[in-house]
């Protein structure tokens, strides 16, 4: 055999080799480094150099199972440019998530409520999630819908960058989201455009900042003992 490492046979050229496991993650940002969360002590185990990267965003393949296919089909039928409005569909842990482009949120949500085959009459509010490392999609607004007619649940997720933290308000379609959107604005700073009165709801009116964002400074607690302070929770010793 004349195949040497310098002269690989045709079946071992890069395009013919099987994909390295997890290679698709290499372009994702690093989530965690090291193994044990020890930063200050001398970790000589060699695990300190480990880099754990975020999983690449994936779409679930069809069929989704259960009623998820019917919901997706119905939505695809009623929205002409479905692929443009819905970026990804993820089925995980028995729940379906539609990742919707924020520009198209109102359209999608209105159809979710009004189409006879969908009929998601009830919205159980919006919740914010802040992913500071997810560049360009830092702020997520997550909606959960219930259909009483068909006894189904779906989740709709939209994202907005920190630089332009706006998401259209769905209060005109689901009035129950009035306070939920105010709460998400209060805690995450997501501006729900078109909301009738987007003011703070839990924090005092003159509060600065949005406390549930990950970059919100937590502050320590001065203790009356020889000038000691209890450090903020994110700077305390932790095991993970």
């Amino acid at each position: 055999m004349s195949e040497t490492p310098e002269n690989p046979g045709p079946e071992e050229t890069p395009e013919n080799l099987p994909a390295e496991r997890g290679a698709e993650r290499m372009s994702e940002h690093v989530k965690r480094t090291g193994m044990f969360g020890a930063q200050s002590s001398g970790d000589t185990s060699g695990y300190g150099g480990l880099q754990v990267r975020h999983a690449a965003p994936v779409s679930s393949p069809r069929p989704y199972g259960g009623y998820f296919d019917e919901v997706a089909d119905e939505l695809e039928r009623t929205i002409p440019d479905f692929g443009d409005a819905v970026e990804r569909i993820v089925v995980d842990r028995g729940e379906i998530t539609f990742h919707v482009r924020r520009e198209r949120l109102l359209d999608v949500v209105r159809r979710l409520r009004d189409e006879p085959g969908l009929r998601f009459e009830l919205c159980t509010g919006v919740s914010g999630v802040h992913y500071p490392s997810d560049a360009g999609r830092e702020l997520h607004a997550v909606y959960h819908f219930v259909s009483l007619t068909h006894n189904r649940r779906v989740r709709v997720e939209v994202s907005a960058p920190d630089a332009d933290p706006t998401v259209p308000s769905i209060v005109s379609i689901y009035p129950t989201n009035d306070w939920h959107e105010r709460e998400t604005w209060d805690f995450f700073g997501i501006v729900f455009t078109g909301h009738p009165a987007l003011t703070r709801i839990e924090m005092p009116d003159d509060w600065h900042g949005h406390p549930q964002r990950k970059d919100y400074p937590l502050g320590g607690i001065p203790v009356e003992y020889r000038g000691a302070t209890v450090p903020p929770p994110d700077q305390r010793r932790s095991y993970a």
């Binding site: 989530k31 965690r32 159980t124 509010g125 919740s127 914010g128 999630v129 802040h130 959960h144 009035p175 129950t176 009035d178 306070w179 939920h180 709460e183 549930q212 095991y239 993970a240």
Partner: peptide, 22 residues
């Protein structure tokens, strides 16, 4: 929401009293 760690990344409660007061 979990990021794979030992602590919740985010927990949100949809409380009925909050919604109903509207």
């Amino acid at each position: 929401v979990s990021d794979g760690g030992t602590r919740p990344y985010r927990v949100h409660f949809r409380d009925p009293s909050f919604t109903h007061l509207q």
